[in-house]
Design a protein around this nucleic acid. Structure first.
Lengths: 189, 189, 189, 189
DNA sequence: GATGAATGAGTTTTCATTCAT
DNA sequence: CATGAATGAAAACTCATTCAT
């Protein structure tokens, strides 16, 4: 059992070692050679821990998102107003400290859009469910809060993706916060 | 041959010939060989018309989106209520007849998220601007309609992408229509 | 007959049109496409005038060397001392105004060293014979002048090629002139 | 394989395996396929050891010239008169046993003349310096021996290249030896 | 005679995967 | 178990040559 745990840990460790590599070069230019060089393991060993490159990307996203989820959950606990909380939630999409994570998130969405697989779908679902819980909890005072939470998450994601696609990331913070403000005006009350 | 070929038309024709190929196999598995076989041209000829595979995907998206934009603009003219019009707009994201186009659209977003380029950004911008005009025209009766149009488009896009990522495309039509209904309740009064 | 003359002239004209192209890009990167674009002729027409790329390079060298030979012959007539005349002869190897010609000359030597052909050998022979006549005429006052002329030409060529290979072209003029001065000291008395 | 290969040795070994191939077919007709077939390695392995075909030619020239330099240095030690020593030095250019090496040397000069690179220039410089040391040592009894050594090397090289270009290799030995004899008459004493 | 689009064989280059040590 | 050299299929890309108009 200790061996299995070690294997899981090594898998995590290898994936994490490739964080910068993937963020900087993208998945398209990722090769097993680069991975094993970066993680300082033998080429053959890669296959002891991962099935494919996508598998590694998945593992990495898992690690980073879990880490992110925990940190943001803490922050949400420290906020008081609904607006404040939603701003914290939206900060994922523009805050500099998540820029690496966002790059990997972009790659992840790209995979989801073009070559989805069951593992990814399940992970995305669990994330989405978690965020929906957070947001519906935040919006607990309004009716239909669960559905609205779901729409809100998707809307923020859509605004983010539009900004990326239109190369307007510099105005993203304003746009997200204006949107949230407008949303609260219309929906709360 | 002393025939002077219309390079622009031939480029469009080659790209269009690859529509099904790209929709079915995705860009990741696309090869120059498959393209040239599908378009019934020689391997070398590909490079007379395109710089890269991405260039072909771009050309194809351009063709299909322009075609789509024209057809949807016609449909919008035939609709009367705001809801009806927004439903028509949202139909892009779920209607069976656009499924091929959506697959290519997905590939396009994936490129935009991972390896963007100026040409793509410009095309996306022009599309976004067009849709914003449509939607803000539809919402002309409400204040701040331009900004709201922009948010609405992004929100629909976000709902679409979430559904893809969560493998919930079967419920997409309902979700989009419910969202629009809710949106109209909250925003129009 | 007029047609044949035209064909010869067009051959010369096409070759000359490629002067800069070859000097700048080298023969290795020369393609029929580039040639025909540069000379503003159709791709198919190239084969009406030339057998191969090498054939064109040969034609060009012929043109340029003939032109050069005539101009240098004139200059030699205007010079008086032996030293002066030899300096004029050697100027081919360093004078800025022959730099384009030298680049093509380099390519020519490279072909001679690696893939020689009869036409080239004959042309080189006729050039060498001509130069030998010039130089032996210049050195007519000394015994064994014909053999010495031959050695002198080769020595200058060798000094030139060494300078190119060692990237010492900036010191080439001095080196050639010093060599000639030394040569005259030793050989003339 | 857990074998740790000496990359430097394997590089040398692959290059040497292509000696005959390059000498017989020239660089122009050299392909990666032919190289890997000749050296009995996989196509992909070539790129583990070389950057390009030119890189392999460079490595090969390095090997062969070093080997040659050592052997000729030995021979020079066994010779007594200046003339004898210079004849040994010049034998590189005509002796049958160096014909393979000369073919590769020709290819090397061709590259130096058309597409030079720093590595080549440095190697040529080191060879030239070495030869200059040999020759100036041989000519140590005469004044200005260093400069004269340099000229002598270039002159021999020039005579060699002229002979190749004029297809007069059969008379090369005589020509070189006559030149050296003449040179000694004029310069020594 | 001139044209230039089309061809496709040939070449370079990449890289996931294997397996002997 | 880990290693990393070797593999070779597959992909990208080039370009001399042809030939219908």
């Amino acid at each position: 059992m200790a061996i299995i745990v070690d294997k899981v840990k090594k898998r995590q460790q290898i994936a994490l070692a490739c964080k910068d590599l993937i963020a900087n070069e993208g998945i398209k230019n990722l090769t097993i050679s680069k991975i094993t060089q970066t993680a300082h393991i033998a080429k053959g060993s890669f296959y002891d821990y991962f099935e494919s490159k996508e598998d590694l990307v998945f593992e990495l996203t898992l690690q980073l998102m879990n880490e992110y989820n925990q940190s943001i959950e803490q922050k949400l606990k420290g906020a008081f107003t609904i607006k404040e909380k939603l701003f914290i939630f939206a900060s994922f999409f523009y805050d500099k400290k998540y820029s690496l994570l966002r790059k990997i998130y972009n790659e992840f969405i790209a995979i989801a859009l073009t070559t989805p697989n069951q593992k990814m779908i399940e992970f995305q679902s669990s994330c989405f469910t978690l965020y929906q819980e957070w947001i519906s909890e935040i919006l607990s005072s309004i009716p239909n809060n669960k559905a609205i939470a779901s729409y809100l998450i998707s809307a923020l994601k859509g605004i983010y993706i539009s900004a990326i696609a239109l190369n307007k990331e510099n105005r993203l913070k304003d746009e997200l916060e204006n949107f949230i403000t407008l949303f609260l005006q219309k929906v709360i009350q």
